[in-house]
């Protein structure tokens, strides 16, 4: 288990290159990395490219295997991806969504083992009562929890979560990030979480990667990588990084900078 190493990654939408030879230092097993950056910085494209959902080229090794060379079926066995948006008009029930994902991604997991895995995942996220509810009767936040269950159930080597907390209230935001961190620690897997809430990132991530226009602007431990200068460049805000009474870093954005 050597974690994730992105040596080079290039992805485009049509003719527009979103990522151009992006590289990232090794993300170690059991770690959570927050992916930060303004809208359109390339966070979602990076996650989709790694998940094999968006076409991309490059060299990316996960536990010493080149994932870009893997067929999609094999990739789905080791990578779990949580999309940013989930369909609201489906009458599938939550249990079926997670069960179908397990069947497709881990075909070797069958019968009672699969049932037990489903049981444990719904229990861990505390969403057992949602299991037989239809997606179109769930709130946005509940659908997000179901989508996360689908990733966690597979215990993937790499978790790619695109704004997993965007529709959740405060308690669930913390609960979900705790669950993700716990899963990463337990399985020695790598988690990358694209997230807009910088303070949540500072609280739960071992490292942050800040993107701007498809380039890595800063990377490192959350406490040192995030500086007022980096925040200014990445988000266009005048911001302070301060220490709270418990010793955590918190970011306070004072005002938006004029567009240069």
């Amino acid at each position: 288990m050597t974690g994730l190493m992105i040596e080079t990654l290039t992805a485009a939408y049509g003719r527009k290159r979103i990522l151009d030879g992006l590289r990232l230092p090794t993300l170690s097993p059991g770690s959570v990395t927050a992916l930060l950056g303004a809208n359109g910085a390339g966070k979602s494209t990076l996650l989709k490219s790694l998940a094999g959902v968006h076409r991309a080229e490059g060299r990316v090794s996960l536990d010493d295997t080149d994932v870009m060379e893997m067929p999609q079926r094999a990739r789905a066995g080791v990578i779990g991806y949580l999309p940013q948006t989930l369909p609201s008009g489906s009458s599938l029930v939550a249990y079926e969504v997670v069960s179908a994902a397990l069947r497709a991604a881990l075909p070797e997991l069958v019968g009672r083992d699969r049932d037990a895995r489903l049981e444990a995942t719904f229990a861990r996220l505390g969403v057992g009562e949602l299991a037989l509810r239809r997606l179109d009767s769930l709130s946005g936040g509940q659908r997000q929890l179901v989508a996360l269950a689908q990733v966690l159930a597979r215990a993937p080597r790499l978790m790619l979560l695109d704004e997993p907390t965007s529709a959740l209230d405060l308690r669930w935001q913390i609960f979900v990030l705790e669950a993700v961190r716990e899963a990463a620690r337990r399985d020695g897997s790598v988690a990358i979480v694209a997230i807009h809430d910088i303070n949540l990132a500072l609280r739960f991530a071992d490292a942050v990667a800040v993107l701007k226009q498809g380039e890595v602007l800063a990377f490192g431990p959350a406490r040192t990588a995030l500086t007022p200068d980096i925040l200014g460049q990445a988000y266009g805000v005048a911001a302070r990084v301060e220490s709270c009474s418990h010793g955590y870093s918190i970011v306070i954005a004072d005002r938006a900078l004029a567009v240069s």
């Binding site: 094999g52 990739r75 989930l86 369909p87 489906s90 179908a100 994902a101 497709a104 689908q150």
Partner: peptide
């Protein structure tokens, strides 16, 4: 049937779980 079922949870999701 299972692939079609999974597709109802979204095309990106289906792709990510290995469905062509």
């Amino acid at each position: 049937a299972w692939s079609l079922t999974a597709l109802r949870a979204g095309e990106e999701h289906a792709r990510a779980i290995g469905i062509g």
